[in-house]
Amino acid sequence: MATISTTREHLLEVGLRQLRTTGYTATGVKEVLDLAHVPKGSFYHYFSSKEAFVSELFDRYAKGEGERAQRVLGDTSIAPLERLRTYFEELISIYGEPGEGAGCLVGAMSLEIADHIPKLQAQLQSMYAGWQHGIADVLRQAIKRGDLAKSTKPDALAEFILNSYEGALVRMKAEQDSSPLRNFQHFIFDIVLKK
């Protein structure tokens, strides 16, 4: 028999996969329960609502992506701009191939639900802010090393980079073609971030 912790974890794993594949609206509680092979009562034992469930999924996703950012962007044995390039290459290798579940969960949920579920909107804003802050820190390190001009505005540039990446992902999904992401990489790393 499954323990409380494993049943809850299993629901979160299945839910995150389904949310990435079908989005918020098309991911129903019954569908998650059927895929997880868990009775309906179990869901409401752990989560008070679909919104509460998705809120936890956002937390899980943010934690995983935060760990990735720390592992790659925090590796100070590598030059800052090389870390940033490696970071986006890794993200693109995971989320940038056209097909089911492609793209960024934060971007997809921003398009689908951010304007009508305030609690989830606040979480999305927080995830974007943390992500942007991490990129800006790497840019500050690059400025300090002399890899970028001292006049560079790291917070504004981090926002631009993040927005460009998210836009390229949306376009990749719409066109089912990864060329927008290749274009993002070329312009950001070969032109914008050249000293």
Rank of each mutant, 00 (worst) to 15 (best):
L35I: 04
V72A: 09
Y44L: 08
Y46F: 15
L111Y: 08
D147T: 06
Y87F: 15
E112Q: 10
R85E: 13
H186G: 08
R145F: 05
I92Y: 00
P180R: 02
V38C: 06
S126I: 07
V138D: 06
L169D: 02
L193F: 02
S110Q: 14
H37C: 05
T27A: 11
L105Q: 00
A102D: 03
Y24E: 03
R68Q: 13
E82C: 03
G107D: 06
E166T: 00
I94K: 06
A142F: 02
L19C: 09
T3C: 12
E90I: 15
Q70P: 02
L193K: 04
A26M: 10
G99F: 11
E51P: 04
I4Q: 11
H116L: 06
F47V: 05
A114Q: 09
G28D: 10
L139V: 02
R145V: 04
G96A: 07
D155C: 05
C104H: 01
V170W: 06
G99I: 08
G146E: 09
V170H: 12
I135F: 05
A26H: 06
S126C: 09
S93F: 11
Q185R: 14
G146Y: 11
T86N: 14
S110M: 11
V14M: 09
L111K: 08
S164H: 02
A158Y: 01
Y128T: 04
A2F: 14
M1P: 07
G96F: 02
L33R: 04
Y24M: 08
I94L: 11
F189M: 10
D147M: 03
K144C: 07
T22D: 13
D115R: 14
E51L: 02
K195N: 14
L120Q: 05
H10P: 02
S49Y: 11
A62N: 11
Q176H: 13
L148K: 00
Y46I: 01
M172K: 01
I117A: 13
N183G: 11
T3M: 09
S49H: 10
H45V: 12
D115L: 08
V192K: 13
E175G: 12
F53R: 01
Y95E: 13
Y46Q: 06
N163Q: 08
M127D: 01
A108V: 04
S77C: 05
M172C: 07
L12P: 05
L162C: 05
Y128I: 04
L81E: 08
S77G: 13
E175F: 10
L105G: 00
T152A: 11
S55E: 12
V14Q: 03
